[in-house]
């Protein structure tokens, strides 16, 4: 849709229409396939954000789609072993969030299929 809009704008005469720089979007062999996958981000204050991966940049600022927040309470460290989300009780729905790179402690990918232990 964007391209048709662009081309229609170009064919119309004067003045040169505004075009955003398109080259800021990069494909990356590791990061691009992760897009839209569900990831878990643990932040320094022991919270876990679970949502679908939308966007990231050099500083690792990450934007997550419909996101739920979990809180690791009571001195339990979230950075250590694998945390079972269901043990954390209620989550909180936050919607679209942006996690600054500096706060990220751990990034995990939720994969399809069941967990086998």
């Amino acid at each position: 849709m964007t391209t048709t809009l662009q081309s229609s704008l170009q064919t119309s005469a004067q003045p040169e229409p505004y075009r955003p720089r398109k080259d800021y979007r990069k494909t990356h062999p590791f990061l691009t396939p992760l897009l839209l996958k569900t990831i878990r981000i643990t932040t320094r204050d022991n919270r876990i954000f679970v949502g679908s991966f939308k966007c990231t940049d050099r500083d690792c600022n990450i934007i997550l789609g419909p996101t739920h927040e979990y809180r690791v309470e009571g001195g339990q460290s979230a950075t250590g072993k694998k945390v079972d989300l269901s043990s954390l009780g209620r989550s909180r729905f936050l919607g679209l969030v942006c996690v600054p790179g500096g706060e990220v402690v751990k990034i995990e990918l939720e994969e399809e299929g069941e967990h086998t232990e």
Partner: peptide
């Protein structure tokens, strides 16, 4: 769901981006 820690690879990969690239 199966969970995989990808912190290191993610950070590394992000560093390969230039400033202003997404």
């Amino acid at each position: 769901p199966k969970v995989k820690d990808i912190t290191e690879r993610f950070l590394e990969a992000a560093r390969e981006l230039k400033t202003g690239e997404l």
